[in-house]
């Protein structure tokens, strides 16, 4: 995976001009998404993931990244409400999210990392108000590549810490549910 990045970013010097942006494309539940290459810190192979109990499906768990504990979000569950099936091609795309106390790394579980595309602003259109099955606020824009539309994700919305950290309530209610049962 990392080879892919290095090869493609070789052309980075040219692409620094503002017109053309580089985007990493990946598959989630058979659909193509992309985020700006500048948001991507690292792509790592899927390794041992520790599940955090009583959390919603979109929290896939936590991993050990060189001694630091990093949460992993299941993008499929987050975007499509269907849990991802982990396969050989599954990858974790590591991004950095700004929070008040500094930057925090978050991993995104995706089904497959495709390639790095150069997309010119001419081919980028605003998000449609309807017609997709994911929440419109998650879509930053649509990019047309070879007559196919790719959704550019609004990372700060998809990985909004305020929203993700609301999981406590869900967990509480689930915890209580269990206690009712036994």
């Amino acid at each position: 995976m990392s080879n892919l990045i290095r090869k493609e970013t070789g052309g980075n010097a040219l692409a620094v001009q503002e017109q053309v942006g580089q985007y990493l494309t990946f598959l989630v539940d058979k659909e193509s998404f992309a985020i700006s290459i500048l948001d991507v810190k690292e792509i790592i192979e899927i390794a041992n993931i520790t599940r955090v109990p009583l959390t919603p499906d979109y929290i896939h768990g936590v991993i050990n990244l060189r001694g630091n504990v990093v949460p992993v979000i299941d993008l499929s569950a987050r975007l499509k409400h269907r849990c991802a099936e982990v396969s050989k091609r599954s990858c974790i795309v590591l991004v950095e999210v700004e929070v008040a106390e500094g930057a925090q790394f978050i991993g995104m579980l995706v089904d497959e990392v495709r390639e790095i595309l150069e997309i010119s602003p001419a081919n980028i259109q605003p998000a449609p108000d309807f017609g997709t099955d994911i929440r419109t606020e998650f879509i930053q824009a649509m990019a047309r590549v070879d007559e196919v539309f790719i959704i550019l994700l609004a990372i700060n919305k998809v990985l909004s810490l305020e929203e993700l950290s609301q999981l406590g309530r869900i967990a509480d209610s689930r915890g209580n549910q269990f206690s009712e049962q036994d």
Binding site: V52, P53, L54, T55, I59, V62, G67, N68, V69, V70, P71, V99, E101, Q104, I106, L161, L164, S165, Q166, L167, G168, R169, A171, D172, G175
Partner: peptide, 13 residues
């Protein structure tokens, strides 16, 4: 190791 902001509301971890 801190778990970060996402998990800060968990009362059991």
């Amino acid at each position: 190791k801190p778990l970060g902001k996402i998990f800060e509301k968990l009362k059991y971890i």
